[in-house]
Simulated assay, not measured.
Amino acid sequence: MYFTEDELSRYVDSYIQEGYFNQDGALYLFPVAKSTEITMINKTDWEPFAEATGTTVDELATTEGITEVAQRYYEWTDEQTPDVPDDGKAFYGRDSMSNYFIIGMKQMGKEIFQVKDGKMILNTDEDLIRRLWDNYYVPYMKGYFASLGKFRSDDVKTGDILAYTGSTSSAVYFPDTVEKENESYPIDYIVCDSPVMEGGENIKVQQGAGMAVTKSDEEHEYAASVFLKWFTQKNQNLRFVCESSYMPVLKEANSVDVLDSVIKENNIEVNQKVYDCFTTEMEDFDKTSFYTIGAFDNSYSARKILDYSLADKAKADKDAMDAAIVDGESREEALAQYLTDENFQNWYTEFCHSLECI
């Protein structure tokens, strides 16, 4: 054994537990840098909307709150051109739909993929899945949400949305300017926590990097373990994460005071967006539970279903609805065909079947 219980206790508990994925008491994966999700906002275009409508950033703390704010933004932007009906703008998008399902369900008290003894038990509670549908598919169809580029930061850059939820490690890609067809202007930003399902627990996704020591001779295994201990100590680990936009793995390193001290002592230049993500997460660290699904056969395929099933349907249905509107159908009539219990049931049945067949 190269790590004592006392040494392991210094690391964030959930980060260590993630490495025990074979139910045999052996630690297979050692955490070196982690990430979670945050919400980032185009502050420059947010401020006039917020001032005009009395909207606050605090309203974005819940998933349902984001949906309500997105509706308000659509209606406010629509009112800017009274001679052009139904031209409101989308407010929000999200990068990882699998995280939306996995963390949203966990926040509401269920594990969509519950792993026991290496076997996955599927939990697709219809009422809870319906809440996720109502807070993604419905606002997407109404034009409150959008997903156009490869990543939602791309959609912020083109001015198609104002805010998105994505990985903390993606903060450096949040644009400094909005670039539309005939217009370009600089923007500032706001960083806030990723949303929680209304009434749910403060649970955030746990993701990021780990390292494994391959079986060899005792000398090489020992040397590898010494390196991992050195690399993950607060001074080295914080210097690394400041460059890589990931979060440190020691409990004591997840502190704004410790972060500031290491930055000052080592004269580190930190990207301001990365620093703001760090401080946002660290300020709430002790009140947050981090979660990742356990390892099971075909887990990658299962995540892909979560990533694309609802997202692809929303995009395809929105494109079809928009085409019907261009052909002369009213927005209300076109939209009503999709916002039905039957449409949800059809998708839900197919969604469950796909997961059951993996």
Score class of each variant (00 low, 15 high):
Asn135Met: 04
Glu342Tyr: 01
Leu355Ser: 02
Leu259Trp: 03
Leu250Val: 12
Met108Pro: 03
Asp257Met: 09
Asp78Cys: 11
Ala314Ile: 03
Glu252Phe: 02
Glu79Phe: 08
Ala302Leu: 04
Pro31Ala: 12
Met1Tyr: 00
Ile187Met: 13
Val191Met: 13
Met120Asp: 04
Ala324Arg: 11
Asp260Pro: 00
Leu122Gln: 10
Leu339Met: 05
Thr62Val: 12
Ile268Met: 12
Glu47Arg: 06
Asn254Trp: 04
Ala212Tyr: 07
Thr63Pro: 04
Asn271Ile: 08
Tyr300Leu: 11
Gly54Asp: 13
Ser309Pro: 01
Phe240Tyr: 15
Trp347Ile: 08
Thr232Ser: 15
Ser216Met: 09
Thr279Tyr: 02
Asn267Ile: 06
Ile187Val: 11
Arg303Ile: 11
Ile325Trp: 03
Gly328His: 05
Asp327Ser: 10
Lys89Phe: 05
Asn346His: 12
Ser330Lys: 08
Ser147His: 13
Thr62Leu: 05
Phe285Cys: 14
Val191Tyr: 01
Gly210Glu: 03
Thr62Arg: 03
Glu265Asn: 14
Gly200Glu: 05
Pro248Tyr: 08
Asn298Glu: 14
Gln206Gly: 00
Val274Trp: 00
Lys34Met: 15
Asn346Glu: 14
Thr288Ile: 12
Met108Gly: 05
Glu126Ser: 10
Pro195His: 06
Glu350Ser: 15
Phe91Asn: 03
Lys106Val: 02
Ala90Asp: 07
Glu329Met: 15
Phe113Asp: 02
Phe240Lys: 10
Gln236Arg: 06
Tyr300Trp: 10
Tyr28Lys: 12
Ala336Arg: 06
Lys264His: 08
Asn271Tyr: 01
Tyr189Arg: 12
Glu75His: 14
Glu181Phe: 11
Lys106Ile: 02
Met105Cys: 13
Ile268Lys: 00
Ser9Glu: 12
Ser14Pro: 02
Glu221Thr: 03
Cys352Gln: 07
Gly166Cys: 15
Ser96His: 11
Gly143Glu: 05
Gly118His: 01
Lys157Ser: 14
Asp45Met: 08
Glu18Gln: 13
Leu238Gln: 04
Phe145Gly: 02
Gln236Ser: 15
Val196Trp: 00
Leu310Tyr: 04
Asn99His: 14
Gln272Phe: 13
Asp307Leu: 11
Gly88Leu: 01
Asn343His: 10
Gly25Asp: 10
Ser9Pro: 09
Asp176Cys: 10
Phe285Glu: 13
Glu265Gly: 06
